[in-house]
Design a protein around this nucleic acid. Structure first.
Lengths: 362, 362
DNA sequence: TCCGGATCTGACAACGTTGTCTAGGCTCTA
DNA sequence: TAGAGCCTAGACAACGTTGTCAGATCCGGA
C-alpha cells in the first residue's frame, strides 16, 4: 500500500505557460494532501491556507495566488470531516423515508432536497422499508453523523428513542405521519378528511356497499383513512359490513385477493375506496379484468391515472408540498425558532376523473 | 445559547424499578456528552469507553456494565465525524443522480441503497437536475465528505474534474451513461440495441414513416438511441426525413408540440418511437386526443402502461439491476479489485403490449 | 515465595481542520 | 521621528475519536 501513482493534476486554471514540470511530491496513493502539505508547498503558514480555502479576508493577492497554485498542484480538497468535528455544525440533514423507490415519496424527497440545497445543506436519506427497527437504525446513524436536523416518515409507533438526540439539539420534524409516544413537529396530509370526501363522493353517486382496502392499521395514515371511511358511511346513513373493510400489507397478492373477495358473493361491493397508491394500482389491474363496472376512488394520485379508462378518480396529496413544508419547518428550528411543537395538516384534493362517478350496476 | 433543557434521557433498558430521579447532570443544550464524559461518570479511562462502544474485547463484564450505564444515563452517542477523521474510512458512498423524483431512477437509487446497506455503508445522494455544474458541485461535495466511493449518473460530458479525486483513492463508477473525456468503470443499458429493436418492431408492422422524439443530443443515451433508430431504419431500407427526428429538452410543452408537428402535414408519421419515460408519458397524452391511431413504442417502462388502451409497448431497462450492478462494481473496487476500467452493458427487453403492434392507417 | 505470562486498563499522540491570540511590518498623523 | 493603528501572517490549542504502548493486576506453577 504505497503505490506510486503520479497522475499529473493538471487543472482548469487557464494560466499561460509554465507547465510546471509535474514534480508531484510523490503523493502516496490514497493519502490525500492536507492543508499542512499545501502550506509547506506554498511556503506559508497553515492558517493562511485555511483562510484562502474559506475565502476569509486578510490575505494579499500575491499570497493567495501562491496558495491557490499549491492547491491545484497537489489536488487538495478540504476534509469536511475534520471541519465538521471542529465547527460542530455539519450543514447536513437526514431524511428517513419509507421507500426511496415509492413514487409517492419521490417528490417529497426531492422537495426536501431543494430546500436543503437552498439552505446550503446536504441531504442524507435512507429507506426504512416500513421496518421500525430499521427506521431507528437509520435515524440514529444519521445522528451519529451529527446531522443538524432530521426529517422522519415514521415506520414505527414509538419515537422516544429520539428524545436524547432531540434534547442534544438535533431538530426533528415528522412528516406524513405523526411521531409516536412523543410530542414533536409534524406535517401531515388530511387523511381523515380526504378519505371522508372520497367515500362521500362514491356515496353521492348512489353506492351503498363500498369497500375499503388499506395499509396495516398500525400505520397512522391507514387508520385515519379508515376513520374517514367510517365517518363518510355514517354521514350517508350507510351501514358498514365488516367484510367490506380490509387492512393489511399492501402487497399485490393480498390486495388482489381482497378485491376479488369483495367482488364475489351475493351482495358484492359496487364501489371501492383504496387507501394508497400501491393499493390503487393493484385494484385497477383487478378491476380491468372484471366484466362488471366497479366504481373506484383511490388515495394518492398516480402517473397516467388520467389516461386509463375509466380514468381513475383520486384523492390527491401534494407530496412535494409536504416535503417542502417539513423542510422549511426544520430550518426554522435550526435558525432558532423556539415555539412549542407544531402540527401542520395540509388539505387533500379530490380529482374526479370518471372511475368515481360510475353508478352502481344492479 | 446555554439553554437549560433537562429532559430525562430515560432509555429502553427494561430494568425493573429504580426510576432514576432524573438527576440529569445538566447537559447543556446542544452540548453532547463525549467519551470523556462517559469515562468520568463511569470512573474508567477514555479508552475503555471506546472499547465498550466498539465491542472490542478485553473488558470485564463488570466494567462494561458500568460504562453502559453511564452511556445510557448521559445519552451518549459516538461522534462519527471524529471517528471518520481518525480512521480514514467513512463507510459511506455518494450517488449523484439526475432527479431523485424521476420514477426511472427511483429503483436504481433503491438498489444502490440496498447494496450499500449490505456492505454496512451509508448512502448520500443528490440530484444534478441535468445541470453539469450542479453535478460537479455535488460530486465534489461528496468527495469533501470523503465518501469511500462515488456512483455518478453523468449530466455533463467532461468528468476530468474527478481525476484528482480518483487518483486520491475515491472509487468511482458511472451508471446509465459513460464518463466524459476519461476512462472509468461504467454500467449502461443497451440504448442502441434497445432502440434499434423497438424501431424494427414498428417497421415490421408495416410502418415506413416513423418519428423519433428524444432527449438532448448531448446526453449519451439520447444519442445512442437515435443511432439505434437510424440503424433500424437503414436495416429496413427506410429513408429518414429529418423532420421526423427531434431531440431536445423533455418538457411536456416541447414534446407535445413536436408530436403534433409530426402528426400534421401531408405525409405524417404513422408511428412514433419515444426516447425515454418522460417523453413517452407526454406522447401518450397527445395521442389519446388524436382520432387517428398512431403506433407507439417507448424507451423505459411506465407504471400502469399495461392498463392503457392500447397498452403501451416499451423497451424496458432494468433500472434496479443497473443500480445493483454499479454498486457491486463499486464495492469490488473498494475491496481492492485492481482491474482496468470495465464497461458493462445490460440488455433491454421489448415488451409488446399493443401500441407498437398497430398497423399504419392510410 | 517468586516468576512468567495472560488479562485488563489507561496515558498519550494523532487524524485535519478552525478559532484565538500575538508578532511583525506597514502607513498615517502629530 | 515617534506613536498609534491597521493589516497580514503564523503558532498553538482544541474538536472527539482510535491505535499504540506500557503499566497494573491476577493466575498457576515451580
Amino acid at each position: 500500500m504505497l503505490d506510486v501513482t503520479p497522475h499529473a493534476p493538471g487543472k482548469d486554471e487557464p494560466v499561460p505557460s509554465s507547465a510546471q514540470p509535474t514534480r508531484s511530491p510523490s503523493p502516496r496513493y490514497g493519502a490525500r494532501p492536507t492543508m499542512k502539505d499545501v502550506a509547506a508547498r506554498a511556503g506559508v503558514g497553515l492558517k493562511t491556507v485555511s483562510r484562502v480555502v474559506n475565502g476569509e479576508p486578510g490575505v494579499t493577492a500575491d499570497t493567495e495566488r501562491r496558495v491557490q497554485d499549491a492547491i491545484t498542484a497537489l489536488g487538495f480538497r478540504r476534509n469536511d470531516s475534520a471541519r465538521i468535528l471542529r465547527k460542530g455544525r455539519t450543514a447536513s440533514i437526514g431524511l428517513v423515508l419509507e421507500d426511496l423507490a415509492d413514487p409517492f415519496y419521490a417528490p417529497l424527497n426531492r422537495a426536501v432536497e431543494e430546500v436543503a440545497r437552498a439552505h446550503g445543506a446536504l441531504l442524507i436519506n435512507g429507506s426504512s422499508a416500513e421496518d421500525p427497527e430499521r427506521e431507528r437504525e437509520l435515524a440514529l446513524a444519521f445522528c451519529a453523523r451529527r446531522v443538524d436536523g432530521l426529517i422522519v416518515i415514521p415506520a414505527g409507533d414509538d419515537h422516544r428513542y429520539l428524545e436524547p438526540e432531540i434534547a442534544a439539539g438535533i431538530a426533528t420534524v415528522f412528516v406524513d405521519r405523526p411521531a409516536g409516544q412523543m410530542d414533536a413537529d409534524a406535517v401531515l396530509s388530511d387523511s381523515f378528511g380526504g378519505a371522508r370526501e372520497g367515500v362521500a363522493h362514491l356515496a353521492a353517486h348512489g353506492h351503498r356497499r363500498i369497500g375499503f382496502i388499506g395499509d396495516r392499521p398500525r400505520i397512522h395514515t391507514a387508520a385515519e383513512r379508515l376513520r374517514g371511511y367510517r365517518a363518510a358511511m355514517a354521514d350517508a346513513g350507510l351501514p358498514v359490513d365488516e367484510s367490506w373493510v380490509s387492512l393489511g400489507p399492501t402487497t399485490p397478492e393480498r390486495v388482489r385477493a381482497e378485491t376479488e373477495r369483495m367482488l364475489a358473493g351475493p351482495a358484492p361491493v359496487t364501489a371501492l375506496f383504496t387507501g394508497n397508491n400501491r393499493v390503487t394500482a393493484t385494484a385497477v389491474r383487478v378491476l380491468a379484468r372484471v366484466p362488471r363496472r366497479v366504481a373506484l376512488v383511490g388515495f394518492d394520485d398516480l402517473e397516467l391515472a388520467d389516461l386509463l379508462s375509466p380514468a381513475v378518480t383520486v384523492v390527491a396529496q401534494d407530496a412535494a408540498r409536504l416535503g417542502r413544508t417539513a423542510a422549511e419547518q426544520l430550518f426554522r428550528r435550526l435558525d432558532g425558532a423556539d415555539e412549542p411543537p407544531r402540527r401542520v395538516v395540509l388539505p387533500t384534493r379530490l380529482i374526479a376523473r370518471g372511475s368515481g362517478e360510475l353508478r352502481p350496476e344492479e
